[in-house]
Amino acid sequence: MIEVKDITKKFGRKKVLNGVSFTANKGEITCLIGINGVGKTTVLNAIMNLTPINSGEILIDGNKINKDSYEKITFIPDAITMLPSMKISDAMTFMADFYNAWNQTRADELLSFFKLDANERISSLSKGNTAKVNMLLGLALDVDYLLMDEPFSGIDIFSREQIAEVFTSHLVEDRGVIITTHEINDIEHLIDKAVLLNDGVVLREFNAEEVRETEGKSIIDVMREVYHA
């Protein structure tokens, strides 16, 4: 379980996160939803210790993040994390070199599923294919937790469908996933839990099926209520 406990984050005088708390379970897809602002990405960066927080605590299976955690949790940012001059195969070799959790079989499987050519240079890839390579590099790690920043934004509809398909497959199953989005439409039925963020605070954290069952509301209904309140 990833526990985010009352974290605050200031950029200069501006409070980007103002006491954010939520949890994300293993085997569930948790979605951080925010219609604007930088808070969502900052939360993911904070979980990965890629940006310091001013107060609060983040625990991964009860522990603070350390160097060994990166074999258990990984982050797929919205831009690719490899050098543009690398070929896809170079990027995969780099990953294999440094991570014990790297799973080459799974990487090859993803390569063919996404119909990517390992000899292509990252700099020459289309936006959609760059996003897929980025996904591949994260998904091919045998980690317990996967964080993804806006995996569906800025790419074509077919790439989006392919990536959505990944979410319902064995590639994601049993892992804990946190994704961020500002657009819930595509993934309404994919997620377990929604965390609504606004102005640095969590407005509501709920299980999507539960809200449908007990309140008869869609995620967007809840968003409408919460954001316009």
């Binding site: 990965m48 210790n49 890629l50 160097k67 060994d68 955690s69 990166y70 074999e71 990984t74 982050f75 940012p77 831009a79 690719i80 994390t81 490899m82 050098l83 543009p84 780099f94 440094f98 991570y99 014990n100 959790a101 990252i122």
Partner: peptide, 16 residues
């Protein structure tokens, strides 16, 4: 640029 390699370097399972 947009390809922030710093992400990768700081997410390596080794002492920074």
């Amino acid at each position: 640029g947009k390809n922030t390699f710093a992400y990768r370097l700081f997410m390596l399972p080794t002492a920074r």
